[in-house]
Design a binder for these strands. Structure first.
Lengths: 205, 205
DNA sequence: GACACGATGTCAGTGGCTGTCATCAGCATA
DNA sequence: TATGCTGATGACAGCCACTGACATCGTGTC
């Protein structure tokens, strides 16, 4: 077979996730990741554009799946529901255990959060494109996509923040329902006397 | 007064925006920015956390304004409308000319887009906090904030992409109206036969 | 056997960013 | 007036992310 151990990329991903988890993202050097994977720093950068990207290998695959699901949605579906269904399909391929580990690393570092956000923005943009191709007007397509991503984001964060694995599909549906309620103005008006608020050490500012 | 020229920070911001515009973000070194501002590289990093942050000095001020507006909203306002009004108030302090120049730089570079996204995410998070403090339930607060930011983002992008200055307030209101329509499923169902689509070289994939 | 190919290694260099110490005007205080 | 403190800046050394250029070496092909 090959002259080298196979699956260099996979080994780098594994080593990186481990090291980021063990000592933190900033405290890990690319050279260390490469060494644990039995490779050199230079090779790391041949597989990944930068030190962060090694955590986001699956995002292309996910985006593909979600976009395809929208494109193949049955005809008389409302755009927002097509987006919800597509994101549910995307969520279905995620593995709770792995997603939790990965997310635990990401939330500890601002640069990694930035990268996550731009991946979601890219997904929103691709979704909007798909909707436009289905004949949805430009502004509506953008807003449906962006609002859909917002709902997904909220659901996903609840999913990975919990040790016990709830059903992500269910969380996504709840999130979209709440989104609809909230934008309809159906949510109760705000009151000046918040219900559950004790004055134990008021937040500064 | 001081021993040095006053307003070092402002001079750095000005020099950076100019240079990023002239030769691009990546082609500009921090040393060059500092030199144009009559300072040293080390001083740049005392004023800004990194090379990107110099473009985002106003974001704290903006976030403050928006959050305060939500907190001070009159009692019987629906949360989504309070958020819309607050973002309109925030948008009102932006200067079209300057926002356009800044945005033109940001869209050319992925790292800068990442930074912009995390600032918006921070704003969403602060908005959600403000809503919770006003007694809005947790999930509703998150979704209202995130969806509101989505609407703002779309409106803002339209505003800065146009040479002629439309009214940002107006664009924001339109965006929120469209958001409400779209999440209500009021938008027309998707059709398999898109209205305006000529087959001139189908996009790959 | 010559040769192209593709994945990796080696090495030198750039630039973002940090820690540390020095410098120096203004200000307070003895 | 001398002394000392403070706060903004400069000077310098160093780490590490990332890149370009070239070398190496199995594998498959002609």
């Amino acid at each position: 077979m090959g002259r080298w151990e196979p699956n260099a990329r996979g080994r780098l991903e594994k080593a990186a996730l481990e090291l980021y988890g063990e000592r933190g993202f900033e405290q890990t050097t690319v050279a260390e990741i490469a060494k644990r994977a039995g490779l050199t720093e230079r090779t790391f950068f041949r597989h990944f554009a930068d030190k962060r990207e090694v955590l986001f290998g699956g995002s292309v695959h996910l985006e593909d799946l979600v976009v395809r699901t929208v494109i193949e949605a049955s005809d008389p579906t409302a755009p927002i529901d097509a987006v919800a269904a597509a994101l549910e399909a995307g969520g279905a391929v995620l593995i709770h255990e792995r997603a939790r580990k990965r997310h635990a690393v990401i939330v500890t570092n601002a640069e990694l959060r930035e990268r996550e956000l731009i991946k979601l923005a890219s997904l929103a943009s691709a979704l909007a494109d798909a909707l436009r191709r289905r004949g949805v007007a430009d502004l509506a397509a953008q807003l449906t996509a962006e609002a859909g991503i917002a709902a997904f984001k909220v659901a996903f964060e609840h999913w990975v923040s919990d040790t016990e694995e709830k059903d992500l599909s269910h969380l996504i549906r709840e999130s979209f329902d709440e989104l609809k309620a909230v934008t309809a103005g159906n949510s109760h008006s705000m009151s000046m006397t918040p219900p559950h608020r004790s004055p134990e050490g008021s937040p500064r500012r």
